[in-house]
């Protein structure tokens, strides 16, 4: 099973200036599985997921110790950051479509990676939108501004945008927190389909969501992974009393 780890963090410490946000975090994320990161606000789960495709590089004053391996290779030393992000895509908390048309949003990634051929782009856009279960809804308004579609559609557009780059891993940082229940359930359905082709890591503060969609769960608390394991085990038979308290809604 060890060879099946797509991503694995080994003893990661992270500092914002003097403040330590992650303490000795180690976690394996398996291929074609959904790994959920749960925990109360400010526990470091978002910080951790941002480490996985080096999005914390953007923020000033962040120092990271420890190694993160992607396919057994160190993401820091063995990868160029651009290459890494092409393979490990990310969907954010708030839908963040670019202020351009639906089509351009999806074609953005392929274009910057050098695909110029118009028919090829059309193809990629259609496949990605279909994969994101959005094609039918937007096929008539591909060339309208993306900001004109609904919030749930925007988030799926963002997922399509990530898929268009053809990544192997999709990171999702609370992708449904800004959405209504119907949109949320559509995205959950989508995640279920996507995991056939992609490895998915998702941050959520929604217990039920984690329970519904994930195969593995890690519980973060104050920058530490308190417990991780198969989702059923974490939810129904946690070893740690803190985990149990959180799962049952006693705090958080």
């Amino acid at each position: 099973m060890v060879e099946n780890n797509k991503l694995s963090a080994k003893r990661v410490d992270l500092f914002y200036g003097d403040f330590q946000a992650l303490h000795d975090v180690s976690l394996n994320m398996e291929k074609n599985k959904v790994t959920a990161l749960i925990g109360p606000s400010g526990c470091g789960k978002s910080t951790f997921i941002r480490c996985l495709n080096r999005m914390n590089d953007v923020i000033e004053g962040v120092t990271i110790h420890g190694d993160i391996l992607y396919d057994g290779k160190n993401i820091r030393t063995d990868f160029d950051v651009i290459e890494l992000r092409k393979q490990i895509g990310m969907v954010f908390q708030k839908p963040n479509p670019f202020p351009m048309t639906v089509f351009e949003n999806v074609a953005y990634g392929p274009k910057i990676h050098g695909i110029k051929d118009k028919t090829r782009l059309d193809e990629i856009v259609e496949t990605s939108l279909r994969d994101a279960a959005l094609w039918d809804e937007v096929k008539d308004r591909l060339h309208k501004p993306a900001l004109g579609i609904s919030g749930g559609q925007q988030q799926r557009l963002c997922i399509a945008r990530v898929l268009a780059v053809n990544p192997e891993v999709v990171l999702m940082d609370e992708p449904t927190s800004a959405l209504d229940p119907i949109s949320t359930s559509r995205i959950e359905d989508l995640i279920d389909v996507l995991k056939r082709d992609y490895t998915i890591v998702i941050v959520t503060h929604n217990m039920q969501q984690a329970g519904r969609i994930s195969d593995k769960t890690a519980f973060f608390y104050q920058g530490v992974i308190v417990e991780d394991g198969p989702t059923e085990k974490i939810f129904f038979n946690p070893e740690n009393p803190q985990t149990e308290a959180y799962i049952t809604g006693k705090f958080g």
Partner: peptide
Amino acid sequence: MNIQQSTRRAKR
């Protein structure tokens, strides 16, 4: 480190 040509171009 394996870097694709498009990335190299973008970096240049």
